[in-house]
């Protein structure tokens, strides 16, 4: 295991009025790790993730992402991370190459680098014939692969994935995780939420949020052993049952 810390969170808390959405969470993620960020609906995952990617300010506590302070350097964080939401965040009315060009440009990449990397990417995805295709005409599975590739196009140190596989067919879902493995082998840290418990098994480590707290954090095999569960689904159910808030 490499020792470079890419995400360091200490006592991070977010309150909305009287409601504590994220309650004093502390954890670290190391470089190149696939980190599963799980929790029931309403447990506080999205709020926590929004703070880490610089979209929401914490009430108290500290966190560093890719070496930057989330309180004072949120603009630097945005430049150094990749993000893919459930809705794939591509522009449907732009062509495949135009989407790549747009996002790479936003991240400040040079035209020459963009052109070279675009060719390389399309070749790798076997997408060369689709360069001029409108994104809206692509099958769902292709869109998803493209969205992930665009999210890591600028070589971020870490990519945040918010339920990236909802609704896609089983074969595509599995191909998608193979892409995630490859990214992790290239030393891109992957921070992902999912509701598919079998996907939690692909992660190096998994945290489970309950009522705003992180109630468990370990490798899937250690969690299964600790909770005497046959799979992650059972671990999740045992933990989430303790939740008191709706």
């Amino acid at each position: 295991m490499k020792n470079n810390i890419i995400v360091e969170v200490s006592e991070l808390t977010k309150k909305f009025g009287n409601f504590t959405a994220v309650d004093n969470i502390t954890f670290k993620v190391t470089e190149g790790e696939i980190f599963g960020f799980l929790g029931a609906n309403g447990a506080g995952k999205t709020t926590a993730m929004q703070m880490l990617i610089g979209l929401s300010k914490q009430t108290s506590g500290e966190a560093f992402v890719a070496g930057y302070n989330i309180r004072t350097e949120s603009e630097e964080i945005k430049k150094n991370i990749g993000y893919m939401s459930q809705k794939f965040s591509l522009y449907e009315d732009l062509k495949v190459w135009e989407n790549i060009r747009l996002f790479a440009g936003i991240y400040g990449m040079k035209d020459k680098d963009i052109a070279e990397k675009t060719d390389d990417l399309l070749k790798r995805l076997d997408f060369e014939d689709e360069r001029n295709t409108l994104v809206k005409s692509l099958p769902l599975g292709w869109k998803q692969k493209l969205a992930f590739s665009v999210a890591i196009f600028h070589n971020p140190k870490i990519v945040f994935l918010d339920e990236p596989t909802g609704g896609v067919d089983p074969a595509t879902r599995r191909q998608f995780w193979e892409m995630i493995y490859k990214a992790a082998e290239d030393n891109i840290t992957v921070f992902a939420t999912t509701h598919y418990m079998d996907e939690a098994e692909y992660c190096d480590r998994v945290s489970i949020m309950v009522d705003g707290r992180i109630d468990a954090l370990d490798t899937p095999s250690n969690l299964k052993a600790h909770f005497e569960a046959k799979d992650m689904d059972e671990v999740f159910r045992k933990l989430a049952r303790k939740a008191t808030r709706d």
Binding site: G39, A40, N41, Q86, G167, H195, F236, R237, A240
Partner: peptide, 10 residues
């Protein structure tokens, strides 16, 4: 049950 966590789904 789309987007709903495993416990609520059950």
């Amino acid at each position: 049950t789309t987007g709903v966590d495993p416990v609520s789904r059950k």
